[in-house]
């Protein structure tokens, strides 16, 4: 038993050590690379990092990607959350269809979807606007599966029907129900869905590249042709940023989770129907 535990612990430590090496060394190596000086024996320098703000393509691309992330998250919440709530409460028959549609992007590779969506974007840019922010519309499709799963888990954890009926019976309109009852009861799931969407958008390359927009990842590639150090520095920074986002989520989510199942403590005095018939029959 305890030998088994010791063996298990040894195995776990070995696995974690190997995993840490495989996953951390490349990130460390990127950092190392980004601080190399020019020439063989030159000292460490942060000049590649310092060059980020002064590389206009990068500065623009960072702003644009952050905007895209924000817009996509808001769009996702504005469209998906009310639909999911509404379907659960009023149109449960559509539940499977909505789920199917939301998970559909998993089976359509982005590179394939972009083939079908390109004519649409050509049309939009000719007739409306060629702003890069229109990418958000396509990104919303990409984040659907992840956002759906996250919100689905959040909605499953609350008694949506009762909460809504209670609020409605107290005179709340649907807007109030959404903003003051549903949203405050699932902050972790909403945060989760938003941050997953944001991190996906920050790392997106396929759509932007093939629809000829310059977002962060595309810019990093362009800049790398000129200054490898600077683009690698941005790459590390964006990666760490995404990691911090998810870390925040992981800890905030677990701390703010409330209304979880309450396990009633065992009462030392049990309810009364405690004297079993067999005992009464035996007498004392």
């Amino acid at each position: 038993m305890s030998r088994r535990r010791i063996r298990l612990q040894a195995l776990r430590i070995a696995i974690f050590a190997l995993a840490a090496a495989f996953f951390l060394v490349p990130i460390g190596a990127m950092f190392e690379f980004s601080t190399r000086g020019i020439g063989v024996a030159s000292p460490r320098t942060l000049s590649a990092w310092a060059a980020i703000p002064s590389t206009p393509e990068l500065a623009t691309a960072i702003t644009v990607s952050l905007e895209l992330a924000l817009i996509t998250s808001l769009l996702m919440l504005g469209l998906l959350l009310p639909t999911m709530v509404w379907v659960r409460l009023r149109l449960p028959r559509l539940n499977r269809i909505v789920e199917f549609i939301c998970l559909m992007p998993l089976t359509v590779p982005a590179i394939a979807l972009v083939v079908g969506i390109k004519p649409l974007y050509i049309w939009i840019s000719l007739n409306f606007t060629d702003s890069i922010l229109t990418l958000s519309f396509a990104y919303l499709i990409l984040v659907l599966p992840y956002a759906y799963r996250s919100l689905d888990a959040g909605l499953a954890a609350i008694d949506l029907k009762t909460l809504t009926e209670a609020a409605r019976s107290l005179g709340a309109g649907w807007g109030t129900v959404m903003l003051r009852v549903v949203v405050p009861n699932m902050p972790a799931a909403i945060l989760n869905a938003s941050l997953l969407s944001a991190s996906l958008v920050l790392g997106e390359y396929t759509f932007a590249n093939l629809l000829n927009y310059e977002n962060l990842q595309v810019a990093i590639q362009y800049v790398s042709l000129v200054s490898a150090g600077t683009s690698i520095a941005v790459a590390v920074a964006s990666l760490l940023f995404a990691f911090v986002l998810l870390m925040i989520l992981s800890f905030a989510g677990s701390r703010r989770r409330r209304g979880g199942r309450v396990v009633p403590a065992e009462t030392p005095i049990a309810p009364v129907a405690t004297v079993p018939p067999s005992l009464l029959a035996e007498g004392s």
Partner: peptide, 29 residues
């Protein structure tokens, strides 16, 4: 789990850089 969430979405240029900087012919390792 958080790290896996980030890294599973990770790809493209950044990931390629990471490996170039590690085991490319100018890489650290």
């Amino acid at each position: 789990m958080s790290a896996a969430g980030v890294v599973a979405q990770f790809g493209g240029v950044t990931l390629t850089f990471a490996f170039v900087a590690t085991i490319g012919t100018e890489g650290f390792v």
